[in-house]
């Protein structure tokens, strides 16, 4: 019990060291004293030079904030949908969000340069999720299996459309589509943070407040009903909350895989399955993981590696290690 409390505090506070580290490292290293001066207290004679102010507050800080927000969003939505669908292999991309976003990006790059990629991606990822939900709906109910199948169909459809666009556009546009699809935070600025934040707050807030009911929903449809849950309506609300938050995340970061799938598993293995703990800790662990991955992505080489590649390279082996070690603890079928 004691050890578990320590683990919980560690996970909860993990974004802090990641935050400090990410501010310090980069093409221009910022020493600890300078950071202290910039954020906490700075004597007048050692005023912060302008270029450092720009690096810290306009380059690094928005990117760090955005990385944490995206990681947090992907993770809590993954945890939410895994509970709602009682399926360990689910994340928000299952709803077709990622392929929809990819299509939105592709058409805005290829045909509508005046339409910002972020807007195109946001609209089409929500549209894809809506389409998935509508296709899966039969006689007023949305069975899990048909939702998963509909998600696969919608994803495949949008993926095919993206392929057509890739096939016809010129190589420069193709390159920017491909780069965007790999997932990257290199275009992060305060504007991106401001566009994504409200949606993430709404979605995250709903899930945060309703997190205990996820335990009841994860009991399965029939049992949740006898416990007093309006299963159809409440499940729809949770899916909606996850979808709008993830659509916002995808629109500013591209498609970053594995975070939403992996983080909730790690958290459950460490602190158990109760969603009153899993949701908050998925948020902080997702934020730290994403931030560290992005820090590696921008410092590891002289150029910039798309962060989606880093999350997958870290995530996949770590996930397998955890499954071999204690997968049965976190999930029992």
């Amino acid at each position: 019990m004691k050890a578990r409390t320590w683990v919980q505090w560690g996970l909860l506070l993990s974004p802090l060291p990641a935050f400090v580290l990410a501010l310090q490292v980069g093409a221009y290293p910022v020493p600890w004293e300078t950071l202290w001066g910039a954020f906490v207290y700075c004597p007048e004679q050692a005023a912060l030079p302008d270029y450092l102010r720009v690096i810290i507050f306009n380059v690094r800080l928005p990117r760090i904030v955005l990385a944490m927000l995206v990681g947090l969003t992907l993770s809590f939505s993954g945890a939410t949908l895994q509970a709602v669908f009682r399926n360990p292999l689910v994340d928000a991309y299952l709803l077709g969000l990622s392929s929809g976003a990819a299509f939105g990006c592709a058409i805005s790059v290829a045909f509508f340069p005046s339409l910002p990629i972020q807007v195109g991606a946001f609209i089409f990822s929500l549209l894809a999720a809506f389409l998935t939900f509508t296709l899966a709906r039969t006689r007023g109910e949305v069975p899990t299996l048909s939702l998963i199948l509909a998600g696969i169909v919608v994803s495949a459809f949008f993926a095919a459309l993206v392929s057509i666009i890739k096939f016809v556009v010129d190589p420069y546009k193709l390159a920017s589509i491909v780069y965007w699809l790999m997932g990257s935070l290199s275009l992060a600025d305060w504007h991106a943070v401001a566009t994504a934040l409200p949606w993430m707050l709404v979605g995250g807030g709903m899930v945060w407040l309703g997190r205990w009911r996820l335990n009841a929903l994860s009991m399965g449809e029939a049992e949740a009903k006898t416990l007093g849950v309006e299963v159809g309506r409440e499940r729809g609300l949770f899916i909606l909350a996850a979808a709008i938050a993830v659509a916002a995340a995808v629109s500013v970061s591209g498609i970053i895989g594995w975070v939403g799938l992996m983080t909730p598993h790690i958290v459950r293995m460490l602190v158990g399955p109760d969603h009153r703990r899993v949701i908050p800790l998925s948020m902080t662990v997702g934020a730290s993981f994403m931030l560290l991955s992005d820090t590696v992505a921008r410092t590891f080489t002289a150029g910039e590696i798309p962060v989606g590649i880093i999350t997958t390279l870290f995530g996949a082996p770590f996930f397998i290690y955890l499954l071999k070690k204690g997968g049965q603890e976190s999930w029992k079928t």
């Binding site: 509970a83 009682r86 360990p88 009911r213 335990n215 009841a216 994860s218 009991m219 399965g220 416990l227 007093g228 849950v229 459950r268 158990g272 399955p273 109760d274 603890e329 976190s330 999930w331 029992k332 079928t333």
Partner: peptide, 17 residues
């Protein structure tokens, strides 16, 4: 058949939903 290994206490608490 619960898919998550909730503790007995957590499971009973769901009666309060």
């Amino acid at each position: 058949h619960p898919v998550f290994p909730y503790t007995v206490r957590e499971l009973i608490l769901l009666g309060r939903v």
